[in-house]
């Protein structure tokens, strides 16, 4: 039984109680993914599974056998940051940084959703094929990631600068 994490096959636990979050942090020492509420409310543990964003705290690791997980450690290209990581620095997208890995993984998944035309709660026309990377859309789509420092404006700025200007960056 194995799972792909950032491109490498890794073992799954024998105990089905282990969450994907604890598998990453406690078993494989990938501590970039953070444990906030551990009940699906804060988004700090957001990772990508086959490109889709999920909260890893509510995911039993065993359910994800054979799937490909990308964490914050898997986004940079060697020493070169992912464009969104760089934008978080340039736009003050964080203060304490605890929510940041979840924010960035979530935004990468979000950009792919928006690019393929998935609607949101603030999308006016559900039949539209394309949806703009507007501030309202970005804020709504990122509502599952809380920042207690209140860096949300910088976060939305960073996401907008990365994907609105260059949609090709989105997966």
């Amino acid at each position: 039984m194995s799972i792909m994490i950032n491109g490498a096959a890794m073992s799954l636990p024998e105990d089905p109680r282990v969450s994907l979050l604890d598998l990453l942090r406690e078993h494989h020492h990938l501590t970039g993914t953070k444990k906030g509420c551990n009940q699906g409310a804060c988004g700090a543990c957001t990772v990508l599974v086959d490109g889709e964003r999920i909260v890893s705290c509510l995911a039993l690791a065993m359910q994800y056998e054979g799937r490909a997980v990308t964490t914050i450690e898997g986004l940079a290209d060697g020493n070169e940051l992912h464009p969104l990581q760089q934008a978080f620095i340039e736009h003050d997208g964080f203060q304490c940084g605890y929510c940041t890995p979840g924010q960035i993984c979530s935004a990468v998944g979000m950009a792919a959703e928006l690019k393929r035309g998935a609607p949101s709660n603030v999308t006016g026309d559900l039949s539209a094929d394309t949806i703009a990377f507007s501030r309202d859309e970005l804020a709504e789509r990122m509502s599952g990631n809380l920042c207690r420092c209140g860096a949300h404006n910088g976060i939305i700025d960073a996401i907008g600068a990365t994907f609105a200007a260059r949609p090709e960056v989105a997966a």
Binding site: V55, G109, M110, R141, S143, G144
Partner: peptide, 10 residues
């Protein structure tokens, strides 16, 4: 789309 968060809906 009015429910939960995108991560949870996924």
């Amino acid at each position: 789309l009015a429910g939960a968060s995108a991560q949870i809906r996924n």
